[in-house]
Design a protein around this nucleic acid. Structure first.
Length: 186
DNA sequence: TTAATGATGTTCT
DNA sequence: GAACATCATTAAG
């Protein structure tokens, strides 16, 4: 069962608290960002290109792209040619394999590049359907306490509060402005 | 604690 | 040629 519906802005907070496993390794999603079609910060803003083809295909597939030449970033394609960037997980299953892939036990999934490294997500999964292996999903239990704030690392539409996080989680890539200090440690 | 920088490859102008 | 949805490391305050 896939708990997916709606456009990027609806889906991004909806995914907080949902468990994601890739090939049996993963954890609870604690941080996401929404990118909409008419959003200057979105890869889909200027229309279809070879890189963003997945965003213009069927919804609820993977969109994986290379970031800064070194890292992979994992998104869920949403309705209406948007996407949700998965930025952080609370590691739960397969900690050993994650640490081995990461080269150490620190910050296993705190950030989009670290997360894809820990889960072994690469461009090979670009466009892949999410409702079958290696992906596995577990619905959340009730509605978690969700915080919102500006997105990270962009230069356009900087103010839009379309970054979502699990309130107080120590597994965030960065703290949300205005929340209590101490999380996360870097 | 924050700030600066290099690594690295693809995309788009 | 410039920009880029990042990260690890190093240097400074």
């Amino acid at each position: 069962m896939i708990p997916f519906e709606g456009d990027a802005l609806a889906l991004a907070p909806r995914l907080i608290g949902v468990t994601l496993l890739v090939d049996g390794v993963g954890g609870i999603i604690v941080e996401t960002e929404a990118y909409r079609r008419d959003d200057p910060a979105s890869h889909s803003f200027s229309g279809p290109t070879p890189r963003n083809a997945a965003m213009f295909g069927p919804a609820f597939r993977a969109y994986v792209y290379r970031s800064y030449g070194l890292h992979w970033c994992f998104n869920i394609v949403a309705e209406r040619h948007g996407a949700v960037l998965i930025r952080a997980l609370a590691p739960l299953v397969g900690l050993e394999r994650m640490a081995a892939r990461r080269g150490g036990p620190a910050f296993l999934c705190a950030g989009p590049g670290r997360l894809t490294q820990a889960l072994a997500i690469t461009g090979a999964l670009d466009g892949a359907p999410l409702d079958r292996p290696p992906f596995e999903w577990r619905e959340r239990d009730g509605v978690p306490d969700i915080v919102a704030g500006p997105r990270i690392g962009i230069t356009k539409a900087v103010e839009a509060p379309w970054r979502f996080g699990l309130c107080g989680s120590p597994f965030l890539s960065r703290r949300f402005p205005g929340t209590s200090p101490g999380y996360p440690r870097r």
